[in-house]
Lab assay of single mutants.
Amino acid sequence: MQIFVKTLTGKTITLEVEPSDTIENVKAKIQDKEGIPPDQQRLIFAGKQLEDGRTLSDYNIQKESTLHLVLR
């Protein structure tokens, strides 16, 4: 499924993921596309910060959901 990741600069990254993918996994995909190390990434969905060990389905993230990427 496709999800979108919006950065603070207003750029939107499109990722191909599975509901069973972990947040860690998603961060690795963002690193592949954008070169941002996962340890600098914070992903936010519905106002919650997403934890590395959880999966997209844990957070009920469905196709075409938009996550927000904050760098630390």
Rank of each mutant, 00 (worst) to 15 (best):
L8Y: 10
I30Q: 00
D39F: 13
H68R: 06
F4H: 09
N60C: 02
G47W: 04
I44Q: 14
D21Q: 07
S57V: 05
T22C: 02
T9F: 04
L56Q: 00
I3S: 00
T14W: 11
G47S: 10
F4G: 05
E16P: 15
D39V: 04
E24G: 13
L71G: 15
Q2A: 03
N25D: 03
L69W: 03
K27T: 11
T22A: 12
D21L: 10
I3D: 00
P37L: 11
P37T: 15
G10Y: 03
S65P: 06
T66H: 15
K33G: 12
T66N: 09
P37E: 15
Q2F: 07
I30S: 01
F45I: 12
D39M: 04
I30R: 00
H68F: 04
D21W: 04
M1N: 06
D21H: 10
G35M: 08
T55W: 10
G35H: 12
Q41D: 02
E34N: 02
G53Y: 12
E51F: 04
L15G: 00
K11Y: 05
I13Q: 05
E24N: 09
V17H: 04
F45M: 12
K33H: 12
V5P: 00
T9N: 09
Q62W: 14
L67R: 01
T12F: 10
K6N: 15
L50E: 00
T7S: 13
Q41W: 15
Q62S: 15
K29V: 01
I36G: 08
T55C: 02
L56N: 01
P38E: 15
G53S: 09
T66R: 04
R72C: 03
Q41V: 11
K29R: 08
K29E: 15
R42T: 14
V70Y: 05
Q49S: 11
Q40D: 04
R54A: 10
E16W: 11
Q2P: 05
N25P: 01
G53R: 09
L71P: 14
K29D: 15
M1Y: 07
Q2L: 06
N25F: 09
D39S: 08
P38Q: 11
K29N: 09
T7Q: 09
R72V: 15
F45W: 11
K48N: 13
I36N: 07
Q40H: 07
A46F: 10
G47P: 01
